[in-house]
Design a protein around this nucleic acid. Structure first.
Lengths: 113, 113
DNA sequence: ATGTTAAATAACCAGTGTGTTATACAGTGC
DNA sequence: GCACTGTATAACACACTGGTTATTTAACAT
């Protein structure tokens, strides 16, 4: 039962898939096409792992499968790492500024906090 | 070169070690003793992985090795998952409140933010 | 020196993960 | 029905992980 988020994101290919899906939903074939060095079945299995870890949704459309990011699936991970954030020394400050800065390109429509 | 943070935290035992070290530094032996079902060498190798991933520091004290958490090592992970946080729906609100609430038990001496 | 303690490393083994090619399955369109 | 398309699954190979026991290394202590 490798339905674990930590395990799911431990693989660089799967992180790349998530990063790709973060920019919008994609058909399975389009995802696979991004990884030149991998075959279609290889990518398909990575997608399966992501599915079982609850990190993506699949929408069936005829023979096509449209994969969509399910960011809530990362809650557990976020929670876990956030615990440690409190222990950051002053570098935390720098990190926050850094993240806030790049957050601009993400979704400025979010509230200011 | 498995000096990867994502890989390092993919193992539950290693996460448990980090969680333990989050409560304070420990001698290698004391850490190993916490895992009844594991032998000393097994834990020692987990510690090695954490070392190589830059998640812990070791202080040598005679024959003893004192392991200390190095939370900055989690920066990369935090950054990665934080990207997705922006995509959270309104559950993000709830999550934040949740984390703020439990943050109290963590380290109230930190600044208020 | 010798023995003891603390931890790491070596050598090995079983299980799992990730890749491949080949194949099956399901829907589309003629 | 039949061919085609898109994706998943099967079967297999191989490397890696994580466990074990046995051993080594290094620092005390007597």
């Amino acid at each position: 039962m490798t339905t674990n988020v930590f395990l799911a994101i431990s693989d660089p290919t799967r992180r790349a898939v998530l990063d790709l899906l973060a920019t919008g939903s994609r058909k399975a074939g389009d995802i696979a096409a991004r990884f030149r060095h991998l075959t279609q079945p290889a990518v398909s299995r990575h997608l399966k792992v992501l599915r079982e870890a609850g990190l993506v949704n699949v929408e069936v459309n005829a023979q096509q499968r449209i994969y969509e990011l399910k960011p809530e699936g990362l809650t557990e991970l976020y929670e876990w790492v956030a615990k440690y954030q409190a222990m950051w020394p002053d570098t935390l400050e720098a990190l926050e500024r850094y993240l806030d800065a790049r957050a601009v390109r993400q979704k400025p429509k979010g509230k200011k906090r």
